[in-house]
Amino acid sequence: MPHYNLIDLLLTMMVFVVWPVSSFFVGRQFDRAPLDEAGLLRRYWKIIVKGILISSLILVSWYWFSRSYLALGLQIGVLGQLGLVLDVLLVALCAYILLFQEMSPDKLRLLRVSGEVRNCPPSESEN
């Protein structure tokens, strides 16, 4: 039988109670507010920060209590590590393209008309 501790209970409560309730109330708040690019971006960053926070808490808990990283699937071979590095580079490239490259208003308008971009409202430069 594995040994559970207070941090395990905290992580479980955060994942199964706190964040779903928080998500419910934040979702209702976003439903009432008009969708704009800044609000949508802020919502995405909150999701990213929550994911990084819970992953960090799990790793700290595993380290603090000297648990085997094999149970988390973190002891992988050289090819697995190479694959992980390639995945990180691919995600970094996609994030760079999405966050830092500017798209012309004409191209953005064309994408919206074609239906490929559905969740972004028109920006001020397009109006």
Rank of each mutant, 00 (worst) to 15 (best):
F16G: 12
L57M: 14
R32H: 12
G77L: 02
T12S: 07
L57A: 13
L9N: 07
V26H: 13
P20F: 06
A33F: 03
L110P: 00
W19V: 12
S61K: 09
G39C: 00
S55M: 05
N119C: 14
L86R: 13
A95H: 07
R118Q: 15
A92K: 01
V88R: 12
V60D: 02
N127I: 11
L99R: 06
S68R: 04
L110H: 02
P122M: 07
E124G: 08
S114A: 09
L9W: 04
Q81K: 15
L86G: 12
L108I: 02
F25I: 12
L98T: 11
H3M: 10
D8Y: 01
P122Q: 11
V21T: 15
L110A: 07
F100H: 11
K50I: 01
L59H: 08
D8P: 02
I52M: 14
E126V: 04
E37Q: 12
L89G: 11
S104G: 08
M103S: 11
N119W: 11
G73Q: 04
G73E: 02
V18T: 11
L74R: 09
D106A: 08
A33R: 13
G39T: 02
S66W: 00
P105A: 09
S61A: 14
M13A: 14
L86K: 09
V15K: 08
S22Y: 15
P122S: 08
D31K: 14
S125Q: 08
L84I: 11
I7M: 12
S66I: 00
D8W: 01
K107N: 02
G27E: 05
M103D: 05
L6T: 10
S114I: 02
M13N: 08
L111Y: 10
R28G: 08
A92H: 01
D106Q: 05
D87Y: 13
L90D: 05
F65R: 02
E37S: 10
T12C: 06
F100P: 00
S114M: 03
K107I: 05
F24H: 14
D106H: 02
W64G: 00
P122K: 13
D31Q: 13
F100M: 05
S66G: 04
P122Y: 06
I58M: 06
V113N: 05
W19D: 04
A92N: 03
N119A: 13
V26F: 14
S123D: 06
L89Q: 04
F24W: 15
M13G: 05
I47H: 07
L70T: 10
R42W: 04
V117W: 01
L108T: 12
V91R: 07
F16T: 15
R112V: 05
I52Y: 09
L10T: 11
G80D: 01
L40W: 09
L108H: 11
E124M: 07
T12M: 06
V113L: 09
D106C: 00
E102I: 00
L110Q: 07
Y69E: 04
E102T: 03
L79H: 06
L93G: 08
L10W: 03
Q81L: 14
R32D: 08
A38H: 06
Y44T: 08
W45Y: 14
G77Y: 04
S104C: 00
M103F: 05
D106R: 04
M13T: 10
A33C: 00
A33I: 01
A92P: 01
V91S: 03
S125W: 03
S125H: 01
V49E: 05
G73S: 03
L70W: 03
L59T: 11
G27H: 10
L82D: 08
L59D: 03
G83N: 15
S123L: 13
L53N: 08
